[in-house]
């Protein structure tokens, strides 16, 4: 019996989303009176024993270089072998790109009920019930899992990272690894340093900025806040900003601590992607902009005057 936590293979570092699931999984194990163990597929260049600080006692590594490439069909079979060998009772993923690709497949293979996009720890007082996002952030559902093995995928930014002193024992797991039927021919990484979906603070701008040439001040504000930059759909569609910055129903759904929306009116499709942000600041010259209804703080005024002042005030505060 154990809680088995899937760690994304990001090569040279551990993703924030993986730190979150390790912290979450350790707590779930504590709740169930069992141990938390990690699983990572492929090879990495950092010391996996250090991940013990998130509360895992053991990490099962399948050291096969072919697994450095994610293929859900191959991954599912390997994870199932590890889950079976370790008697995993609960498997935990992040509901990020990798988790969305793998967890459902594994759910079907193990016939283990899946709660995707969990936002809280399971309620284990009666059965196993997990709260998740539904209706694009407009509600939550409590999902009861009926099966012996359970899978939870945790929404990014929904659980606080907890660290302690431990070190983990890294165990090499010899699994049967099939040959992938998918061949990756090229990989492009976005240029920003902070992943939009993992960012604590996001500075986002819309058509109110009038043109791509005005984004310098948005980037400066983001820089002083150590924030990721984002944009609304019309901005991405007009190619003022790359598509991987688009937040909203058809773009990314994000849940940062702070979302600053500049010159975005706040259409319902946009809100669907950002309404899980903990604090929302809206800067818009139109006092009737619907976004103000969803905001915690707002300034009615000209973005071109406010942004530089905002940047200066934050710089001053941070001293």
């Amino acid at each position: 019996m154990s809680v088995l936590i899937f760690i994304d293979n990001a090569g040279d570092h551990i993703r924030k989303a993986s730190q979150e699931v390790l912290s979450y999984g350790a707590k779930v194990a504590e709740q169930l009176g069992t141990t938390a163990e990690g699983i990572i597929l492929g090879t990495v260049t950092y010391d996996l024993t250090t991940l013990g600080k998130y509360g895992v006692k053991k990490i099962h590594q399948v050291k096969d270089e072919s697994l450095n490439q994610l293929d859900t069909q191959v991954y599912t079979k390997v994870i199932a072998q590890v889950a079976e060998a370790t008697g995993a009772q609960v498997l935990i993923f992040s509901n990020n790109v990798d988790g969305k690709a793998i967890a459902p497949r594994l759910s079907a293979r193990l016939k283990a009920g899946l709660v995707s996009g969990a936002v809280a720890l399971p309620d284990t007082t009666e059965g196993f019930v997990v709260r998740k996002n539904v209706f694009s952030g407009k509600a939550f559902a409590d999902i009861a899992v009926n099966t012996a093995i359970k899978i939870v995928s945790l929404s990014p930014n929904a659980y606080k990272i907890v660290t302690g002193d431990g070190t983990a024992e890294v165990v090499n797991f010899n699994a049967t690894v099939e040959t992938s039927k998918i061949k990756v021919t090229s990989v492009t990484k976005a240029s920003g340093e902070i992943l939009l979906t993992e960012a604590e603070i996001v500075v986002s701008a819309g058509r109110g900025l009038k043109g791509p040439e005005n984004w310098g001040m948005v980037e400066e504000l983001a820089k002083v806040l150590h924030a990721a930059t984002a944009c609304s759909r019309p901005v991405a569609d007009a190619h003022w900003r790359p598509h991987n910055e688009h937040v909203g129903q058809t773009g990314y759904a994000i849940a940062p601590n702070l979302y600053i929306a500049i010159g975005i009116s706040g259409a319902i499709q946009h809100l669907a992607g950002v309404n899980r942000s903990k604090v929302i600041v809206v800067i818009n010259k139109d006092p009737e902009a619907p976004f103000f209804k969803a905001a915690d703080y707002g300034i009615v005024g000209d973005a071109f005057e406010i942004i530089p002042k905002f940047t200066a005030a934050i710089t001053k505060m941070k001293g």
Partner: peptide, 12 residues
Amino acid sequence: DTLTRVAGFVLP
């Protein structure tokens, strides 16, 4: 089989 069931909904 059904593996999960909605126990309830909550509005934020």
